[in-house]
Amino acid sequence: MQDLLDSLRLNKALQDFYCSYAATLDERSLSQWPSYFTDQGLYLLTNRTNHIEQLPVYNIYCEGKGMLTDRAIGIEKAVWFRDRQQRRMISNIRLCSQQGQLIEAKANFFVMESRQGQPSHLLVCGESYDSFMYQQDTLLLTRRLCVIDAEILPDSIIYPL
Rank of each mutant, 00 (worst) to 15 (best):
R28I: 04
W80L: 11
G126D: 04
F109Y: 13
L8W: 09
H51V: 02
D70F: 07
Q40A: 12
H121G: 12
R48Y: 04
H121Y: 14
L55A: 11
Y36M: 00
M133Y: 05
L140Q: 12
L45V: 15
G66S: 10
I93W: 04
D155H: 14
Y18P: 07
E104L: 04
G100S: 05
I52F: 08
F132H: 00
L30A: 00
I73L: 11
A72Q: 08
A105F: 00
E76K: 11
R88M: 11
T138D: 00
C146D: 15
E63V: 01
Q116K: 07
I90F: 01
N59P: 00
Q40H: 12
I52T: 05
Q86S: 12
R94Q: 14
R88L: 11
L123A: 06
L25Y: 05
Q85L: 11
L42E: 11
C62T: 02
L139G: 03
D3H: 13
P34G: 01
F109R: 01
D149S: 02
V111T: 07
D3A: 15
N11V: 02
R94M: 06
T24C: 15
G117C: 09
L123F: 03
E104Q: 11
L44Q: 09
I152T: 13
L122E: 06
Y36G: 02
S131P: 01
E127M: 08
Q32S: 10
M1W: 14
R94K: 15
V124C: 10
D130R: 05
L140A: 05
I158N: 15
W80T: 11
T69L: 09
I60N: 01
L10H: 06
I60E: 10
R9L: 13
Q2A: 14
E76M: 13
Q85E: 11
Q54N: 12
E151I: 01
Q118P: 00
I152V: 13
P34K: 03
R9N: 12
S114H: 14
Q85H: 12
H51C: 07
F109G: 01
C146Q: 03
Q101Y: 03
L68M: 09
I157F: 06
Y129V: 00
T38S: 14
D149K: 03
L45R: 04
L8D: 09
N59G: 10
V111I: 14
R9V: 06
A72V: 08
T24R: 10
L14E: 08
L141C: 09
H51L: 04
R144N: 07
M1G: 15
